[in-house]
């Protein structure tokens, strides 16, 4: 599985069906959430930013675990493909975190009355953005790619402690951010007519994450193996 030619061929096949699937799910979820789902009884239509905010935040958290797991694999088994994965996830995670923060601020102004507040949820989410940016910067700071990957793996692993903190922050401390509306056990606090498009959008964002990470990995592989004969042959055959 760690072989670049095999991965290149496999990911090419996955991207071919993942790309239309992602676009389809995003369009369907956005149309359902923005046009079909009813307005909220208190917020009116401004709540609809939830269809971007929550999926971006959920996948930003899950993506961090993907990066940290790749970091652990890289440290223990020294698999090159794990380094490539880590490096591919970091910018995607950073963008998703930034999207969650910006959409949250845009929603916060009309709802709470402020763009920003230093509560536990928002501050820990900002730390997540800095962790992602830190991994990106650390990769660029080293000449030697193996040393860079090792440093990034350690940073990613240390940062995992932030993920449960973000998730539970609204329950552990008094925060302005509301607790989760989607509940894994029991009835969700969001009406099913609004919940279903939200779940669809979360699925769409997971696909978008997988797609962009795979494309990033392929781009990195092409660069790393630009002189390799298998790559030249594969490009010639396309």
């Amino acid at each position: 599985m760690g072989s670049p030619p095999w991965f290149f061929r496999f990911s090419g096949a996955v991207v071919r069906w993942l790309l239309p699937l992602t676009i389809g799910l995003l369009l369907l979820g956005a149309a359902w959430g923005l046009l079909v789902a009813p307005p909220d009884f208190r917020q009116g239509n401004s709540y609809r930013i939830i269809y971007v905010h929550v999926p971006a935040a959920v996948v930003a958290l899950a993506g961090y675990y993907v990066m940290a797991f790749a970091g652990a694999v890289s440290l223990i088994w020294r698999i090159k493909m794990a380094d490539v994965t880590m490096r591919a996830v970091a910018p995607v995670g950073a963008v998703l975190t930034a999207v969650a923060l910006v959409t949250g601020a845009i929603w916060g102004k009309p709802t709470w009355g402020t763009w920003w507040v230093w509560d536990a949820r928002i501050t820990s989410m900002l730390i997540l953005l800095f962790l992602y940016l830190g991994v990106i910067a650390l990769f660029e700071a080293y000449e030697n790619k193996t040393a860079a990957a090792r440093a990034c793996a350690v940073l990613s692993l240390v940062g995992t402690v932030n993920i449960p903190i973000i998730y539970k922050s609204v329950d552990w401390w008094y925060a302005l951010h509301q607790p989760a509306s989607i509940k894994f056990t029991g009835e969700s606090a969001i009406d099913s007519s609004m919940l279903h498009p939200l779940l669809l959008m979360i699925g769409a964002f997971y696909c978008l994450f997988a797609l962009t990470v795979l494309l990033n990995m392929r781009a990195e592989l092409v660069w790393n193996h630009r002189e390799a004969s298998w790559l030249k042959q594969m490009v010639r055959n396309v």
């Binding site: 909220d40 009884f41 709470w112 507040v117 302005l176 989760a180 509306s181 606090a189 009406d191």
Partner: peptide, 11 residues
């Protein structure tokens, strides 16, 4: 500041 709760529902 208004603190919004986690309840979302149609009117």
């Amino acid at each position: 500041l208004a603190k919004h709760d986690e309840n979302y529902m149609p009117p």
